[in-house]
Amino acid sequence: MNKLSSRTRQALTAPFSVWMAIFVLVPIGLVVYYALTDATGGFTLSNLASIWEYRSTYLVSIELALVATVICLIMAYPLAYSISRMKAHSQSTMVLLVMLPMWMNFLIRTYAWMTILEDTGLINTFIKSVLSLVGYEFEGFSMINTNGAIVLGMVYNFLPYMILPIYTVLTKIDHSIIEAARDLGANGFHIFTKVLLPQSIPGIISGITMVFVPAVSTFVISKLLGGGMTYLIGDVIENYFLGNTGEVNYNVGAALSLVLMILILISSGIMNHFDKDVEPDGGAKK
């Protein structure tokens, strides 16, 4: 293929640049503008200062999102690996199965978890009826309206975003490299740590980002599965914009979002640092 002249390249990227400008740059600009102004439009830092009140909320949100991300990673990696080692035909079936839940609306799926986890829900009713057969009275687990339920909701909803990028990098690994490692006497553990893991880091990193970012900013999951008992930072932001608490305040809401964005930027910066440790050919640096 001929190299594109710079003008053609510009012309081709123009639609995307315009899109990005309108739907990414302008909104971010607005967030920054609102965060740094008061209701009358004058410059102020008081919105940012008022964020100190919400430090515990940030911490809880980050904590729950981290737990969810780690669980996703632990569950997704073996699954992605086993999918990548299947025959081409079964691979596409498995990928389809991973994507299948995403065909249904996110809200409906989360509502479904409510009926599963409730005290009178599917799990508890089942366990109770089984135990009552052997004559044992069981009170049931209290699962809904806890932080655990929120984490579960995050894991369930965002797991595919972890599986798919890891699967993609794993399929690209030449199987002969693994065979070569085996020939050279590496055992399963060494193959994993020295060959597979270093080569799959880019996938892991994009998986972590794609799970952590929506998890840390969610507000629907905490409302439905957490029963409004735990406020995540997404809930606070939502309230400031929608005025559910009786006060609409775009400025504080924007300041909260800005801080969240900065936190996410910092963490992806740290993660990209790990990514750079991997050389382009996939081998780890000495």
């Binding site: 806890t146 932080n147 984490v151």
Partner: peptide, 10 residues
């Protein structure tokens, strides 16, 4: 916060 009990189990 009864959350931690079963988040641990999970």
């Amino acid at each position: 916060s009864s959350a931690l009990d079963w988040i641990d189990i999970f």
